[in-house]
Design a protein around this nucleic acid. Structure first.
Length: 556
RNA sequence: GGGCUAGUAGCUCAGCUGGCAGAGCAGCUGACUUUUAAUCAGCGGGUCGUAGGUUCGAACCCUACCUGGCUCACCA
């Protein structure tokens, strides 16, 4: 599912209402951002919110924060009865500055340094360009999350001449822009100033594709370009488009004006004084007659165990796809919705995954509880609002309605392993046992897949087990022979044993004086090759006596 | 050098634009028990980084400082 441009997605207002009314329930940070945006544009019929990322490397989970931040604010705006247009600008007219280490074709990439990433061939050979490869991977990955912006490719916009007016305005106001940037420099104590003959222009040679260019401007639509790399000279008519573009600091405010952007977040690298947002604010006002969008600065996301900022140029980057292998889409959204944008946090792949799922499940239950006018209502409301925003497709949660059945991650991991990862079989088990309504099966299977991925790829050794495929014969201590014999008899007598029936017999065994603490390790060893394991009755019922007996009998 | 941000319970974080410090996990106690860090009930736990200031009232606003993180200075 690639955004090929031209497709437009609208968020349909979920409810109508007076936008000036302040509903205390709408109290999430995305709600505050939405309110702020509406206050800045009180008469707008439609609000444009924007995200933008450079696909100069793997688009990772840190970049994702930009997108989810906009999506959540778009939802909040829609909840206020506003039409929202969510655009996503791929800054793929960027320069290839570094050779990505993890890519093949290192030689080709090295030769391509200085070219536009939209023109660098895809080293993996699966897409039209290096940029297109990164873009496709990301666009595909966010589909399951219910995020559907209108994707815009900067290189296509520039080449088609769409920004001709914007470029001309920048060139004609080059002095003003220089002054704005220089003023910001001085204010922050920077020593360097922009040269007096500097033009807000960048681009690529149309002969050799490199970005080492010199410009002169005729004051209207024509720019003369000289390539320092290959010596090529040409005159470019801005109206016809081509390979010229604005440098980042000017490109950003130009696009704000072009798209009438009212809200756009930024990473903290843009957020400081003298940084790009700061100067863009002045430029959009003085050159493009538009006001800077409402802004939320967001902090970085790391992956637990990797630490620090995620950089696309380093290896071991965690992307959305990787996260979705372990986190259900709604759980992932919920994580990002739960943290305020300006807090840094880590996506965990270790034991914390269990805790996060438990927290999420608890939040779901809390959100569905009926309100009772008590102190806890506020927590119920908060949980409800976060979950509404986190839901993959917009939905409202009615207090007092039945919560979906969610099987706890830990429990699921146990049963799933007993079933060797057979998700359908595990689902049948839960349905038959009455723990899972048939209606919640699809959701269950999605979670089960995540659990299994986690068990296989990330779970600590202690957590993993496999039922023996071949029996071993052990010298069973004298004291455990009797109990083992009894267990075998119990299983032989009841080939269709259930968890409950086995549980009852085990209880009887325990009451008859058997020391279960000493006995269980013997059984676990015979079945699993370890001295601890899932609850015995569950394990035996799921694996069935038919499978358990051959593993137990040889040691009698 | 400039800027931003964080510092709240052992840990991870809330604290809704000033109104009695809070959740989860961990810990402790008890109950129960068929043991992957089971379940249920209950309890304890914080000088809100430091020092001042504003206010009837400050975790929240102001000032200075300490510590950590990040970021900016013709790269997008």
């Amino acid at each position: 599912m690639h955004g090929s441009g031209g497709r437009i997605w609208w968020y349909v207002p979920a409810m109508t209402g007076d936008r000036s009314e302040r509903d205390p329930y709408l109290n999430h940070w995305a709600d505050h951002a939405a309110d702020k945006t509406l206050r800045a544009h009180p008469d707008a019929k439609r609000i444009v919110v924007a995200a933008g990322i450079t696909p100069s490397g793997v688009v990772h989970i840190g970049n994702f924060r930009e997108v989810i931040t906009v999506d959540l604010v778009a939802r909040a705006l829609a909840d206020r009865g506003v039409d929202v247009r969510f655009i996503y600008s791929w800054d793929d007219f960027d320069v290839l500055r570094k050779v990505p280490k993890d890519a093949p074709e290192q030689e080709m990439l090295t030769e391509s340094l200085g070219k536009s990433i939209a023109d660098v061939p895809d080293p993996w050979g699966t897409h039209d360009s290096y940029a297109a490869h990164n873009i496709a991977r990301f666009e595909d990955s966010i589909g399951p999350l219910g995020i559907e912006p209108e994707f815009i490719r900067q290189h296509a916009m520039y080449r088609a001449g769409k920004y001709a007016d914007g470029i001309r305005a920048a060139l004609q106001n080059a002095g003003k822009i220089r002054d704005l940037i220089n003023a910001a420099r001085e204010a922050t104590g920077a020593r360097t100033r922009i040269a007096d003959d500097w033009l807000p222009l960048a681009g690529f040679c149309s002969t050799c594709g490199k970005d080492d260019l010199g410009f002169s401007y005729d004051g209207d639509w024509t720019v003369s370009v000289h390539c320092n790399a290959c010596g090529h000279d040409e005159a470019v008519d801005l109206r016809k488009g081509g390979n010229l573009k604005l440098p980042w600091r000017v490109d950003w405010p130009m696009r704000w004006g072009y798209e009438q952007v009212a809200f756009e977040p930024g990473g903290k690298d843009h957020s400081s004084a003298g940084g790009s947002y700061d100067t863009a604010k002045g430029i959009v006002r003085d050159v493009y007659s538009w006001s800077a969008p409402q802004y939320v600065g967001y902090d970085f996301v790391s992956a637990k165990g990797q630490g620090g900022k995620l950089s696309s140029s380093k290896g071991g980057v965690v992307d959305v796809t990787t996260c979705l292998e372990v986190y259900e889409p709604e759980v992932l959204r919920w994580l990002f919705a739960g943290y305020r944008p300006n807090t840094e946090f880590a996506i965990s792949f270790d034991l914390d995954v269990i805790k996060l799922y438990e927290d999420y499940d608890r939040a779901v239950r809390l959100a569905h509880e009926a309100e009772d006018g008590g102190k806890k209502d506020k927590k119920r409301q908060t949980a409800r609002r976060v979950l509404e925003l986190a839901s993959v497709s917009p939905r409202k949660i009615v207090p007092g309605s039945t919560a979906p059945t969610l099987i706890a991650f830990r429990h699921l991991s146990t049963v799933l392993q007993t079933y060797d990862g057979d998700i359908r079989g595990t689902a049948d088990y839960f349905v038959n046992s009455g723990e899972l309504p048939e209606a919640d099966r699809a959701r269950f299977e999605a979670r089960a897949q995540c659990v299994w991925n986690w068990v296989e790829r990330y779970a600590p050794e202690d957590f993993r087990y496999r039922i023996r495929t071949e029996a071993v014969t052990r010298e069973v201590p004298e004291a455990q022979r009797g109990p083992l014999q009894s267990l075998v008899e119990i299983l032989e007598a009841d080939p269709n044993a259930t968890e409950a029936s086995i549980g009852e017999k085990m209880k009887a065994l325990s009451q008859s004086g058997v020391d279960m603490k000493a006995f269980f390790p013997v059984v676990y060893d015979l079945l699993l090759g370890r001295d601890r394991g899932p609850k015995m009755s569950t394990l035996l019922a799921i694996m069935t006596p038919a499978r358990a007996l051959p593993l137990l009998r040889p040691s009698l």
